[in-house]
């Protein structure tokens, strides 16, 4: 530290590679539009101007899974749709994250029936679960921030196994 301290000009910052990568990834989470049911309305409201999701860098909703790094499962997942979700998740490039928004995608919600998947985590790994029916936009933003905290803990180095 003594060698480089106070030797730089004012507009040079020192940091770790991990924090740079994590900062870049968490500040530009581009979600895929995957609104299935009523939670989609709240997701749209979160993306709109009052609860702007774009101030977190996450306002660009990509239509294609190949161009997105986050998928927000907003709504009830039926068995027929679960097959599609699996395919879309497989098409997303790494690093990818999943937010399960609402009660239906987290645990089946009030629909414990023959056609509903009881929780989307039965088919894809979920990072953040947001309870609510539907969760308020502030709740979705809080979930997004918690995901950002989770991304902060990542490292690009190989972990000792």
């Amino acid at each position: 530290m003594g060698l480089i301290e106070n030797r730089m000009e004012k507009n040079v910052i020192t940091t770790t590679v991990d924090s740079v990568f994590n900062w870049a990834r968490k500040s530009s989470l581009w979600p895929m539009t995957f609104g299935l049911a009523c939670c989609a309305i709240e997701m749209m409201a979160t993306g709109a101007s009052r609860f702007d999701m774009d101030r977190f860098g996450a306002g660009i909703f990509r239509p294609s899974p190949r161009q997105s790094d986050l998928i927000i499962i907003a709504g009830t997942v039926t068995l027929k749709m679960a097959e599609v979700i699996q395919r879309l998740y497989d098409q997303m490039p790494d690093p990818k994250w999943v937010i399960s928004m609402g009660a239906c995608s987290s645990a089946g919600g009030p629909f414990d029936t023959y056609a509903t998947l009881q929780g989307v985590d039965k088919v894809i790994p979920v990072d953040v679960y947001i309870p609510g029916c539907p969760p308020r936009p502030e709740a979705l933003l809080y979930g997004l921030m918690r995901l950002q905290d989770k991304i902060d803990e990542m490292t690009i180095a190989k972990k000792a196994s």
Binding site: L79, E83, Q86, Y114, V123
Partner: peptide, 14 residues
């Protein structure tokens, strides 16, 4: 009641 045969052939349950 869910059709387990359909589920096991179409979905990969984690």
């Amino acid at each position: 009641l869910q059709d387990q045969a359909w589920i096991s052939s179409h979905l990969k349950i984690r």
